[in-house]
Design a binder for these strands. Structure first.
Lengths: 264, 264
DNA sequence: CGAAGTCTTGACAAGACTCAAACTGGGTGG
DNA sequence: CCACCCAGTTTGAGTCTTGTCAAGACTTCG
């Protein structure tokens, strides 16, 4: 069993810049007025760690000793099967949190730095104590967990029901929106998405080869172009149409099942 | 926009039996010693609601006004697309909680009673207040959210990477384990799983026809038989093998990506 | 009894995967 | 400066899993 954290390099200063400026992430959950809470937060987290692109932050099966707050860079959270198949469940962008699992369980997934990444780990036990002491942090944590679940439902729907084109369109659209920090994507913009086609494949449950073919289709249909980690949005409307076959309202609420098994 | 709760029938007593006996679910999170907390919990939740099999508990797009605690019966949580496709993200069994989303968002999924179901709703606002007052309840809530995420990762991996046989095997195995309340399933037992092949299809992202084919394969291979809402486990070992191609340890931790995009 | 829905099966089509090979571009080392 | 290597990307041909269409048998319910 490998240690849960690979401390590749420690940053010279031991404080998490984000907790001080509170621009993003978990630490944002602490009220600015709560100087006591802020001090406690500072005291709680471990020195910031820097990972190189490709480094494992933790591996599937490790004990869950830390909660991680991503300060800069991109991280992939993924689950591996014994025969080599890998599913990327989601990508974490700066401000995101990862690494928490239900108390008493080991990690059922791994996390890998996609780019160089700066990460602020907080010991799980310390974090739980802190969370109980600082209500605003507790709320932020819950919000993030709910957010993850919310997203997971959407991803699950796309992977389960979508065609290859829909899966890739959805993923690219989501990533672009998140990376750009906007609510919708505009025609003509180019956005850095530091992934290979293989990453896209492992996140969508397709083969890299098929991802390539679909990307070509999208290019030939003048929807998006994805080359060398850059996504160029040729036609935002088309992308939107591909990415969101769900009207997200209760437009189809009338669908019902029958009830052969009323009594359990 | 439909109301978030279809109050089909109200049970005569307005108290949730589960909160009193605390055998299961969210209410289990309240310390038995914390009589203040117990009283507050009792006061907080709405009258128990009874749904008939097939009833919508809430619909996609509704406002998230309640958190639901399932007392008896089975519930499907699902996400619908405009063209009629539907993905069941997971099934909720007695003791499970559902209906919470990040603050400020509408529900991105619906919930439907599969069997007749008894459900204890608690207003979201009330619940949040209560949670802040009763730390043990707060912890139970967080544990449940983390549990959901934990499961979602596994489901996502199965749907994304698994063959039809693996998806169905995994689902049946999970349901059997959960329904039987055991950690592993034994050869020879029969377990009630009140689902149609269509439910299985919508949960695995396959067509009902193909589900049928795979079920026949599993029957002919003497793994399981699934008829009329009953799952007969013919060979637990075979089922296990199909359901868990992941060794869940870091057996494959060496797989690495290259790093074409170190700098973000 | 008919109606509706589920389950089952067959024949066929299509989307996605496999295998194989060539091209690209960025590093590395001579 | 060039040759080489490596990983990523691109493309083609063929295969196979899964989806689509169609139709019949069975169950439940009114």
């Amino acid at each position: 069993m490998r240690a849960a954290v690979n401390p590749i390099r420690l940053q010279s200063q031991s404080q998490c810049a984000f907790c001080k400026s509170r621009h993003n992430g978990l630490c944002q959950g602490v009220d600015a007025q709560d100087s006591d809470g802020l001090t406690a937060l500072e005291a709680a987290h471990s020195p910031v760690r820097i990972f190189d692109a490709g480094d494992a932050i933790y591996s599937q099966g490790d004990a869950a000793e830390y909660v991680f707050n991503l300060i800069s860079g991109w991280v992939a959270v993924h689950r591996d099967l014994a025969d080599g198949r890998r599913q990327i469940t989601h990508f974490v962008l700066p401000g995101g949190m990862f690494g928490s699992v239900p108390a008493g369980r080991d990690l059922n997934h791994g996390a890998t730095a996609i780019t160089n990444a700066t990460i602020c780990p907080i010991g799980r036990v310390k974090f739980d104590e802190l969370r109980r002491r600082v209500p605003s942090l507790n709320e932020q944590f819950i919000w993030m967990l709910e957010q993850d679940r919310y997203r997971a439902f959407e991803t699950l729907t796309t992977i389960g029901q979508g065609s290859a084109k829909e899966r890739i369109g959805q993923l690219l659209n989501d990533l672009a929106v998140t990376a750009a920090g906007e609510t919708a994507i505009r025609t003509g913009v180019a956005i850095r998405i530091p992934l290979t086609q293989r990453h896209l494949a492992e996140a969508t449950g397709l083969t890299p080869i098929h991802v390539n073919r679909v990307l070509r289709q999208l290019r030939e249909a003048a929807v998006v172009e994805f080359h060398n980690g850059m996504l160029a949005v040729i036609d935002a409307r088309k992308l939107q149409a591909i990415a969101e076959p769900s009207a997200d309202s209760n437009c189809v609420a009338d669908r019902q099942w029958d009830r052969p098994f009323a009594q359990l």
